[in-house]
């Protein structure tokens, strides 16, 4: 019998050659799923820790410093004066409540508008129509935030289209006001609310809706008892966007908010005008704390799994 030299050497090397380091690492990784996962998430986790956690910590630490009001130098002598001001000065309570109010209003209005639109897109529209709708909802996201805010400045103005539309009804444009700002913010964040709800609706199987109807539920009962509970996580996910983005806004309110201000404006004033970084950091803790509470409430609905 003629030996096959090639086959022999190959076979021999496979068995006897010492495994290379890379090979050993590979096989270790292959068999150890946990290690694999840890290595995979290590990099983004490190990034997250540096960029987000460290930045937040730095902000928090800064809030305990003070600014020399004359020279504008920041001094790292520890005190809680900034926080005492936050809790004792009615300005901060007023503005916090106002900001919270607008954020909630914008969130609720956006959800109410987004629900029927998303429902139409996911369950009623033809695939072609759905594509058009998705694009037209995403389209405004391509335009700059500022462009949209200034467009609304024009819409809301005394000579704007809103005034023209409302005049025959005997109404006036809300103008540059809290209402105007809520409208504009509601418009700007709407896509962020529609999309998760739309995705959530798409995930609701058609036959569950059919089953409900089959069992005798009229449309409204189906919406209330089946669609809404199943959508709750998606709605919560959408609300996170509308709520948190509104909580942090200071540009829109400046453009269409008239003579009013939100927490973001106070932060901006303290950084930009007063050059009081520590106070700004302390104020910035308010929306962070509110978001923290909001998210921990939302987490219970399972919405965070939806993001």
């Amino acid at each position: 019998m003629i030996e096959n030299p090639v086959g022999k050497t190959m076979k021999g090397s496979d068995i006897s050659a010492p495994k290379s380091f890379a090979h050993r690492v590979s096989s270790r990784l292959y068999t150890n799923a946990k290690l694999r996962l840890r290595l995979l998430i290590a990099t983004p986790l490190l990034w997250l820790a540096l960029v987000y956690v460290a930045a937040l910590l730095a902000l928090f630490v800064t809030a305990f410093w003070t600014m020399d009001s004359f020279t504008g130098e920041i001094r790292a002598d520890w005190n809680i004066e900034n926080f005492v001001k936050l809790f004792t000065n009615s300005l901060y309570q007023t503005v916090t409540l106002r900001t919270l109010g607008i954020a909630l209003l914008v969130t609720v209005v956006d959800i109410l508008i987004a629900l029927p639109i998303a429902f139409f897109m996911a369950k009623i529209a033809s695939p072609r129509m759905r594509g058009i709708l998705v694009i037209s909802i995403l389209m405004p996201l391509w335009a700059s935030y500022l462009v949209k805010a200034y467009a609304w400045r024009s819409v809301l103005s005394n000579e704007g289209i809103l005034q023209w539309l409302l005049r025959p009804l005997g109404l006036d444009t809300p103008g540059y006001s809290l209402v105007g700002a809520a409208l504009t913010l509601g418009y700007i964040w709407l896509p962020y609310v529609i999309l998760p709800i739309y995705t959530g609706l798409e995930k609701v199987p058609q036959n569950i809706l059919e089953a409900s109807s089959d069992l005798g539920a009229k449309t409204w009962s189906t919406l209330r008892l089946i669609v809404f509970p199943l959508l709750l996580p998606a709605i919560a996910a959408g609300s996170i966007f509308a709520f948190s983005l509104t909580m942090g806004d200071y540009i829109t309110i400046n453009i269409v908010g008239g003579a009013t201000q939100m927490l973001g404006n106070l932060v901006y004033t303290n950084v930009g005008t007063a050059n009081n970084l520590p106070m700004a950091a302390a104020i910035a803790m308010i929306p962070i704390a509110i978001m923290f509470i909001y998210l921990s409430v939302i987490r219970k609905t399972g919405a965070l799994d939806n993001l």
């Binding site: 199987p205 036959n207 089953a211 109807s213 005798g216 008892l225 509970p229 199943l230």
Partner: peptide
């Protein structure tokens, strides 16, 4: 919902957010 027929679906179409009892009671609930 206006027809006196009921369907058992191929993949059951149970309401995932409800308990078994709530699922079964649904037709009476509505």
């Amino acid at each position: 919902f206006d027809r006196d027929v009921n369907t058992v679906f191929q993949d059951y179409a149970l309401f995932p957010h409800m308990t078994v009892l709530e699922n079964v009671a649904y037709g009476l609930r509505v």
